[in-house]
């Protein structure tokens, strides 16, 4: 495991929050996923050793929680809420629009590697439905027009990155 020093520091700190080490499984998995992008078999072994558990104790957690993933995803993670209030306000159309914009299907990495789009269940922002999360940020009232605008912004950022950096910092 090749974790950043700040991840390792955060891991050691978070373990002190609990009287029982096992409680730190989810926090550790979150930290590793934020650092590396997904939870590999090595990561499962590493967490098990760190917390003095059997790898199966970690593996069963990884497979239970929808936010933890065992494979890499696109550069940006787009989560579209699927549940009733969002669906009533057009969430399915929003999701279709985003899929079309990036030429991809839910659950797959888009051909340019830029995004992975997923349907998720209620994001607790039903009053501003339909809602979409892009990485850590919530976007509200995402109708078809706004979905296209969000896609345009992501593509523009991607294009900006692709250009040779004229004045790199």
């Amino acid at each position: 495991m090749n974790l950043k020093p700040e991840t390792l520091r955060a891991i050691d700190e978070v373990i002190t929050h609990y009287p029982v080490k096992r409680s730190a499984v989810l926090p550790l998995l979150h930290l590793i996923q934020e650092d590396v992008g997904f939870i590999s078999g090595d990561a499962i072994e590493w967490v098990a050793t760190k917390l003095e558990l059997e790898p199966i104790n970690v593996y069963e957690v990884v497979t239970f929680y929808p936010m933890l993933r065992q494979k890499p995803i696109g550069r940006r993670h787009i989560k579209v809420c699927r549940t009733l209030s969002c669906a009533l306000m057009g969430g399915y159309k929003t999701c279709e629009t985003l899929e079309q914009e990036f030429g991809t299907h839910r659950g797959e990495i888009s051909p340019d590697g830029e995004v992975t789009i997923e349907f998720v269940e209620c994001l607790a922002s039903c009053g501003t439905a339909p809602v979409v999360m892009i990485d850590d940020d919530l976007h509200e009232n995402v109708d078809v027009a706004k979905a296209k605008e969000l896609a345009r912004r992501i593509k523009a950022e991607a294009a900006g990155r692709a250009k040779p950096a004229a004045s790199s910092e």
Partner: peptide, 10 residues
Amino acid sequence: IYIHRGAGAY
């Protein structure tokens, strides 16, 4: 008092 984050399970 500490924060503990869930991971997407209702």
